[in-house]
């Protein structure tokens, strides 16, 4: 009878690294929906005084943008430190090892951080241009 070998259960969230892939775009999505919601509620409800007392929506949107980008920078640092993510352009990460897989995920996560940050800046621009509904 050959040697019996069993394996650990899959690790997904804790020691795994899938979450970092979707974290940055998720921050973009949350920021996007919040901006939309702030503008929509502000425009719909400002007359009834519900949010009318609050400040200009443009500064809320800019503030949200700043917070989101800070969060993304933090995520980018995790991607670099924990996963060894690098901004490589000139090589492919094809090592068949756990470390290779982690570096790959860290690398893609870093790229997604950059893309999400650009998308957030794009979302902030309308907030700066429009001061009314």
């Amino acid at each position: 009878m050959p040697k019996v070998t069993r394996y650990d259960a899959p690790r997904v969230i804790d020691s795994g690294s899938i979450w970092i892939l979707v974290a940055a775009p998720t921050i973009w999505a949350v920021h996007f929906l919040l901006s939309y919601w702030v503008a929509a509620v502000y425009c719909a409800k400002s007359g009834s005084g519900w949010l009318g007392g609050l400040t200009d929506p443009r500064w809320i949107i800019v503030g949200l943008g700043g917070l989101s980008i800070a969060a993304i920078v933090w995520l980018g640092m995790i991607a670099v430190r924990r996963y060894g993510g690098v901004f490589v352009v000139l090589e492919e990460i094809t090592d068949s090892s756990e470390q290779g897989r982690e570096r790959f995920i860290g690398h893609v996560a870093l790229l997604l951080c950059a893309l999400s940050a650009v998308a957030i800046v794009f979302t902030v621009i309308p907030g700066l241009v429009f001061d009314r509904c």
């Binding site: 352009v89 000139l90 650009v118 800046v121 621009i125 241009v129 429009f130």
Partner: peptide, 30 residues
Amino acid sequence: LEREARLFVIWGGVVFPVLLIGALLVWGLF
């Protein structure tokens, strides 16, 4: 030319479109 090809992706596929599209967006909004 591998190095040049990869830099082509960065400059042509990322930097240039971001700047161009950003400018277009601002123009469209105004």
